[in-house]
């Protein structure tokens, strides 16, 4: 558990960070909270000559709660998500999900940007952001662009982000009043990734349903969402179970995961519907 040697960079702005990435190409990686990257480095499954720490970049910080949109800086920690009252009032689902990520010590350092950008199918925030229909802002050598969370994930650890781009901000539309939200997660213990997790929004004739750690990307299902919007819970669950592709691991075999996925989704739907009033 000793990483190979690397150069450490701590740029003060996004442009400098991108410059370092451009200069070193494949050799460089950005690091946010580091909870995914550092273990990989210690296992020597990730070796890079240059580590670009984003801690000192103020542009990547801050939570802004507008009437229509919430924006989160990429370096906002899970702890900040949990303790921001304005955010909890606007989109309670984020606090509810963040509380189920890892443990308090990890949440003090782990960031929302790192969580969504890494492309780890075990992370909770990608599915959540797909449910919320968030947009990710990317900055790179060729300027800025935005990618919808629902378009961002290609395969495990592969995303629409180019190597020399940095995910800078997350924009989330504020769900209207009357939309109930719930995040339901089964895990083996504190700190574990989900055996299955479900993010649900429902109300005002709309619905959005996404699930975590049941395929090599988060799974947002248009047909499951549409079924739920029509009030067809069984149809929603059936569509989602059709969309997920879990694989066997130490958490259990596929059959078990599919069953638990259905249970988590039904529980999340039930709570979200109750909250919708």
């Amino acid at each position: 558990m000793i990483p190979a040697g690397f150069e450490y960079h701590r740029p003060g702005d996004i442009a400098s960070a991108i410059g370092i990435l451009q200069e070193h190409g494949d050799e460089a990686r950005v690091i946010a909270g580091g909870h995914s990257l550092i273990p990989m480095m210690k296992l020597r499954m990730a070796e890079m000559g240059h580590l670009v720490d984003l801690q000192a970049i103020d542009e990547l910080k801050g939570i802004e709660v507008g009437s229509d949109t919430v924006t989160l800086g990429a370096m906002v920690t899970q702890h900040e998500l949990i303790t921001h009252d304005g955010l909890a009032a606007a989109i309670p689902l984020i606090r509810e999900a963040a509380l189920q990520i890892a443990d308090p010590q990890v949440r003090y350092v782990g960031t929302v940007g790192g969580n969504v950008a890494n492309g780890d199918p075990g992370n909770d925030m990608p599915g959540l952001m797909q449910c919320l229909n968030a947009t990710f802002d990317l900055s790179g050598p060729d300027g800025n662009r935005s990618v919808a969370a629902r378009e961002f994930y290609e395969a495990a650890y592969f995303t629409a982000r180019e190597d020399e781009e940095i995910l800078t901000r997350i924009s989330i539309p504020v769900p209207g009043a009357g939309v109930g939200q719930a995040y339901e997660k089964q895990k083996r213990k504190i700190g574990d990734y989900a055996t299955a997790a479900a993010a649900v929004m429902v109300g005002n004739g709309t619905a959005s349903v996404a699930m975590t750690n049941l395929a090599d990307t988060p799974v947002w299902s248009e047909s499951a969402s549409a079924a739920l919007a029509d009030g067809d819970v069984n149809g929603c669950v059936a569509a989602m179970l059709d969309a997920i592709e879990p694989v066997a691991d130490n958490r259990g075999p596929v059959e078990f995961k599919k069953h638990v996925a259905g249970v988590m989704l039904r529980r999340a739907i039930d709570r979200a519907q109750n909250r919708a009033g």
Binding site: Q186, R188, R251, G252, P253, E255, F256, H259, V260
Partner: peptide
């Protein structure tokens, strides 16, 4: 007796 093995007991007993 982790989650999936307990689930397997229930499943084997026809509880699902």
């Amino acid at each position: 007796h982790d989650h999936w093995r307990i689930w397997k007991i229930a499943n084997g007993l026809g509880m699902h």
